[in-house]
Design a protein around this nucleic acid. Structure first.
Length: 273
DNA sequence: CCAATTGTTATTTA
DNA sequence: ATAAATAACAATTG
């Protein structure tokens, strides 16, 4: 499930372990999630280190430990982070467990499209610093979006919104949410959007990121991504998976089809080719 | 057995 | 050569 706001939610699940030492590291060393990572080195260098801080950007998380150790986590399609009690026994899909005195910090991922990265050095690693600047930062301008759409002019707008180099953190449901709010058909070619549509796309990209962070990442306790009832009918999100679902704004039937290889939901009443 | 899944990347096609 | 489309990755669920 993890897109921008869910990633931020999961990052915080390890916050109870901040300032605490890692006594041991438990791994399933053959798991695919370690494909870009030297597992033995990770286990050796992380044991004894203290978790100092964490950050999330796009769909990537970074955990900083004492001694210049940096742990990267990408949740892929099915990854989750959670806290378990000190005595917790890791299960089949718990590929990485940080053992602290009072708890265990667990990374679990059944499908294993996720990814664990590890780096030792003074500053943060390149795979972190090279991430595209956030959609909610000043560098995400209308001009930057317009320029990107021009270069991807022959591609439908839906898959363009999934391109992390310009829309970091956007995933399948956020892309549909943005297009629905901007009233743009997902199959429209990126190169044919009007200046007003480009501006709407820019504005709704920022709004969906902000609202998603407030409503999903802001929740302290239970699991995302169910959005709370108060905003239920103002989000496409809550209707996109129901068969026979209806557009919250027009009441018309929603459509679900493949666009750019991904299931895409839109409201034909608002979003026209 | 078939199809589905909120991600990314390698390979193939145009 | 470049960009776009498609397959592949793996596990589980309906």
């Amino acid at each position: 499930m993890p897109e921008l706001a869910e990633v931020e939610f999961y990052r915080k699940q390890w916050s109870p372990g901040l300032g605490q030492r890692v006594r041991a590291v438990l791994v399933h060393p053959r798991a695919k999630v370690f494909r870009e990572c030297n597992v033995r080195r990770l286990v050796g260098r992380l044991a004894g280190a203290t978790l100092l801080s964490s950050a999330a950007s796009a769909k990537q998380m970074l955990f900083r430990f004492g001694g210049g150790r940096w742990l990267g986590v990408h949740l892929g399609m099915s990854g989750e982070l959670r806290e378990e009690p000190a005595g917790y026994t890791p299960r089949k899909h718990d590929h990485l467990v940080l053992v602290q005195r009072d708890r265990r910090l667990v990374f679990t991922d059944p499908r294993m499209f996720g990814r664990i990265l590890f780096f030792v050095g003074r500053g943060p690693p390149g795979w972190w610093t090279r991430l595209a600047p956030p959609i909610l930062s000043e560098t995400f301008t209308v001009a930057a979006v317009a320029d990107f759409l021009r270069r991807r002019g022959r591609t439908p707008i839906k898959p363009v919104l999934l391109m992390q180099e310009r829309f970091p953190g956007i995933g399948n449901w956020m892309a549909d949410e943005i297009l629905w709010r901007a009233a743009i058909h997902p199959r429209r070619l990126a190169g044919v959007l009007t200046p007003a549509e480009i501006r709407a796309l820019w504005r709704e990209s920022r709004r969906v990121c902000r609202l998603a962070l407030e409503t999903i990442a802001g929740r302290g306790n239970d699991m995302p991504p169910a959005l709370n009832v108060r905003i239920r009918d103002s989000w496409l999100f809550n209707h996109r998976w129901e068969d026979g679902g209806r557009c919250p704004r027009t009441g018309a039937r929603l459509v679900r089809e493949q666009v750019g290889g991904r299931t895409t939901c839109w409201s034909p009443a608002r979003q026209k080719l």
